[in-house]
Design a protein around this nucleic acid. Structure first.
Lengths: 251, 251
DNA sequence: GCTAAAAAAGTAAAAAATACTTTTAATAAT
DNA sequence: ATTATTAAAAGTATTTTTTACTTTTTTAGC
């Protein structure tokens, strides 16, 4: 009986979000893979779960080892588990996907398994979203899960992320969008406190609209139940300094 | 390297919801375990994922084998994955939890691994929810995940569900509550079409309020963007027959 | 001090949610 | 058949929230 049970490898996939204060753009971390499969391809950071290691610990280790991040505090939450049998080419591996919201855009250092690590700018498209840097550009899909997995890329391509990472990213964006109105944890990428303008930037990106399409005055009224005033004001730009807010803790 | 990787057993746990038309109550399916650990205890239906089997297939097989259900169509969606190392006593097993919304309350038949299978009535409490039948009563928790897993029941008790199933059920209720306003898939337990009164019953239960606290006239206006008219009217009670509605399909 | 920029603060109109009443369509009793 | 009863649909006025827009405040730079 026991021999017919599946004991798959458990991949921890972590979508790491941050915010570039200089360009006011959302960033997603991608890794250039050092080993096959999908060697030389860009991918979401991944690691295999080890014996006697919790999934949370594995997600933490992933951030430290592969990317060289040493931040003390950041928020990680589970996204979903991806189990399609054709998502890997060789041995079966489930992907336990997490999202991490980094409170700052830290400098990166490629660790084991990575030829390169880069922040990619996250920007809205008409129907989807895209990740881009100077060299590459990737998009989220607009198809359904079934359609996507039917013709999964089995051979590496410069235009596509490794494995089913394009789909995982799509699910992540959908989740963030859904939670924008009742638990906007994505705002944690703005740091411990943020201005309403910064918050509106995030909302605008995921709702595929422009910053100016979201009225500051009305945004404040509609969302103040989610925020607490953080007292002091920032002084980064010309004009009247914005007040700072922080996320109201849950429960 | 490979030997230090974790290859855990994958448990598919399925929270099966349905609706008792006679009592107008929400039902959850529990199984009395035939084997250790937690032999003779009530638990959520579970099965191990097999080699070359998709998670979806395992969830389907679980419904057929353990419970004897032979319905043609039902909706299954992923809830979350539970990875705590202490959630099982023996060999490590991750729980890939799903929710199934059955369109009718079918008769049950205990299959392999089950001494008994029963529908439990799901009712709201002040702060939590409870499952009950003539003999037993279980509650969802009100603590956090960390607190819950710190003193997990390792020894069977008549008052508690097996493993961490009390916690899994709590997460399920929270998820359904969160999705009530934008994707109320739980309404699928009412069948292909439903009356507004039935829909209000579901909303009332998960919001821990009474049916009469949700005004029919206003409920219709506020939620019609989620529903489509299903034409015909039902004739089950005295009084003006209610119109039927169905869930508006996504996208 | 004056001007420009950017956010806060305020305000009136529009829209939506709520509480409540009336009408309609069925059953069951007379 | 007529009437009472039930329950839902439909309608309505009040309240509340959202939206679009205007004014004021607070800073930086000249």
């Amino acid at each position: 009986m026991a021999n017919i049970l599946e004991r798959p490898l458990i991949t921890i996939t972590n979508i790491i979000w941050s915010f570039n204060q200089a360009t006011q753009q959302i960033q997603v971390l991608l890794v250039k893979r050092a080993h096959d499969p999908f060697k030389n391809n860009w991918a979401l950071p991944e690691t295999f779960m080890r014996a006697n290691e919790s999934a949370d610990h594995a997600a933490l280790r992933l951030i430290k080892e592969k990317i060289g991040l040493t931040l003390a505090e950041f928020h990680t939450e589970q996204l979903a588990t991806f189990t399609n049998q054709h998502r890997t080419t060789g041995e079966r591996a489930l992907s336990l996907a997490y999202m991490t919201f980094l409170p700052e855009m830290t400098p990166l250092q490629a660790g084991y398994g990575a030829l390169d690590v880069r922040w990619f700018a996250f920007t809205p498209l008409e129907a989807a979203y895209q990740l881009s840097n100077q060299d590459c550009l990737f998009q989220t899909t607009t198809t359904t899960a079934d359609e996507y997995y039917q013709d999964l890329p089995q051979t590496p391509s410069d235009q596509q992320l490794a494995f089913d990472h394009q789909w995982i990213l799509t699910v992540a964006c959908q989740r963030i969008l859904n939670k924008l109105d009742y638990q906007p944890n994505i705002l944690m990428i703005l740091g411990p406190s943020f201005t309403l303008r910064e918050a509106r930037t995030i909302y605008a990106a995921f709702r595929k609209t422009s910053l100016t399409a979201i009225d500051n005055s009305n945004f404040k009224k509609t969302h103040q139940h989610l925020f607490l005033e953080a007292g002091t004001t920032s002084q980064l730009r010309v004009g009247r300094p914005a007040r700072l807010y922080r996320l109201k803790p849950q429960n």
